[in-house]
Each structure stands twice: as structure tokens, then as C-alpha cells.
């Protein structure tokens, strides 16, 4: 997938509305732009439509009205398979294929793209190193891995064919706090090297502040605001302030809280 030369947004939502199968609107008239190389975090509660917003980008969901553009091309007019092969996709449940070894899982998109076996093998080794897994992990099956290892494999698989865009749906949500912090750290250092355009879904403000270059706050089908982490922390918006307050409370509680 080629980058647009104009330097315009890589991903753009234009007046996008989405109704649930029962006709109930999940969100309406969403407008959003994601610039090249940034990590945009979609922050919101469960049911706020953030996962669906993510799926609109790789056309796993279709807008009811409006359009989503990737590299300036409306997704509804593009070849969906080509579109998806150019977008890495990481989900919380990992979606690793249980009947494939780690190596085969990671090499999936290159294989679909017709790379030769030796090149795929080299690429897999490179990716295992990138996500800090031993080469020996390649011959194991997903059920033989820990949660953190599985998620690393999920990230490696999404990066396999070097897509310019990465969609991540609460990728670290199911991990213990320590592993999560570690993977967040590794994500940041990866992103410093790779400069992918990332859309990252989470309900965790701490994660949003840590990873995002901008945070888009979704609530009840509405895009409340899009701010940088610094702006978010001192935003006067009542909802943003409520998030920050809840975050601060949890820290106070953790520090003993007592007078």
C-alpha cells in the first residue's frame, strides 16, 4: 500500500455513522483524522463503539453512512483483501491459529502474499527478535505459550509483511499488570524505530497517556474530544476531567490514601 504523497491523513473518518444490526445507532457523524506515524488512542468505556470504529478501518465493519478513507481511498471502493493485507491487526484474544506453530502464525500474511519459504523464515526470525522472543519459540504452538508471549506473537504476526498501518484492539488488556507495563514499554521502543501509523483502542487512561500521541475520547456514540496526553490531563472538559480524577483516585488509594 502506497503512502499518499500529499502528506494528508493516512486514515480519515468523514461523517461516519454506524447502526447496530438492530437499527440502534452506535455512533453518528464521526469525524477523525489520523496522521502518518502517529499513535492515535481511541479511549472509551465498553459499548462506546471504539472497537467498531477500529473495525471500520479494515472494513470488518461497514459504515451505515459516511465514509472511511485509508490513504485517501474510501474503503468501500477498495479491494478489501488488499486493504487488509496492508494493515496489521492485533486483538486482545490474539486470534492466533491454534493449529499453526508460532512460526506459521507469524508467517501467515507473507505466505498469503506469496513470499518464498526462505524469505519468510528469515522474516520470522527477525520478528521474533524484534518482539524479544527466543528463536526456539517459533516451533511451539500457541497453547504452549504464556499470555504475554502470545500477545508478542500477535504483534509480530501483525508486523510480518511490514504494513504501514497497525490497528490494535486492547492488545494488552488481558495481561497482568507487570507484563502489560513491559509490553507497553516495548511497544514504545518499537514504535520509535518503526514509525507505523497506529490506532490503538483502550479503556485504560494510563495506557492511553503512556502510548498515545493523541487521545480521542469516545462516549455514548459521540467523539468528545481529540487531545494530546498533556492537553488531556489539564482539559476542562467534564468527561476528560472525570477520567483524570478516577485515575488520580486510584493512585491515591494505591499510595495508602489515609491522612
Amino acid at each position: 500500500m502506497e503512502q499518499t504523497s500529499s502528506g494528508g491523513p493516512v486514515i480519515e473518518f468523514r461523517d461516519v455513522s454506524y447502526n447496530l444490526p438492530n437499527g440502534h445507532p452506535l455512533f453518528s457523524r464521526l469525524n477523525l483524522q489520523v496522521a502518518v506515524g502517529e499513535t492515535l488512542v481511541l479511549l472509551g468505556r465498553s459499548g462506546s463503539g471504539k472497537t467498531t470504529a477500529l473495525k471500520l478501518i479494515n472494513h470488518l465493519a461497514t459504515p451505515t453512512s459516511g465514509e472511511v478513507l485509508v490513504n485517501g481511498v474510501p474503503t468501500r471502493n477498495s479491494d478489501i483483501i488488499r486493504l487488509r493485507r496492508g494493515i496489521g491487526y492485533v486483538i486482545q484474544e490474539t486470534g492466533l491459529f491454534p493449529h499453526y506453530t508460532v512460526e506459521k502464525n507469524i508467517g501467515l500474511v507473507p505466505r498469503l502474499e506469496g513470499w518464498d519459504a526462505e524469505r519468510i523464515h528469515q522474516r520470522v526470525l527477525e520478528l521474533l527478535q524484534l518482539v524479544e522472543l527466543e528463536p526456539a519459540v517459533g516451533s511451539r504452538y500457541p497453547h504452549q505459550l504464556s499470555g504475554g508471549q502470545r500477545q508478542r506473537v500477535g504483534v509480530a504476526r501483525a508486523l510480518a509483511a511490514d504494513p504501514p498501518i497497525l490497528l490494535m484492539d486492547e492488545p494488552f488488556g488481558a495481561l497482568d499488570a507487570l507484563t502489560r507495563a513491559q509490553l507497553q514499554h516495548e511497544f514504545l521502543s518499537l514504535q520509535q524505530r518503526l514509525h507505523k501509523t497506529v490506532v490503538f483502542v483502550t479503556h485504560d487512561l494510563r495506557e492511553a497517556l503512556r502510548l498515545g500521541s493523541r487521545i480521542a475520547l469516545l462516549e455514548a456514540g459521540r467523539l468528545v474530544l481529540v487531545l494530546t496526553p498533556q492537553e488531556f490531563l489539564c482539559s476542562a472538559d467534564p468527561l476528560a476531567a472525570a477520567y483524570v480524577q478516577a485515575f488520580a483516585d486510584s493512585r491515591t488509594a494505591a499510595h495508602g490514601g489515609a491522612p
Binding site: 470488518l60 483483501i81 486483538i91 492466533l96 491459529f97 491454534p98 501467515l108
Partner: peptide
């Protein structure tokens, strides 16, 4: 597992690749 099917689609498998490489096995 629906997550496996979703991941397969999300990575750009065609419907027949999904059937023969994932669902049937």
C-alpha cells in the same frame, strides 16, 4: 473461536482461505 475467524479476516484471508486453512482444519 470467533477471535480466530476475526483475526483471519482482518489479516486479509479470502473467504475460501478462511474455510480451507482455518475453519475446516
Amino acid at each position: 473461536d470467533p477471535a480466530v475467524v476475526e483475526a483471519a479476516r482482518g489479516m486479509g484471508m479470502t473467504e475460501s482461505q478462511l474455510l480451507f486453512h482455518v475453519e475446516l482444519p
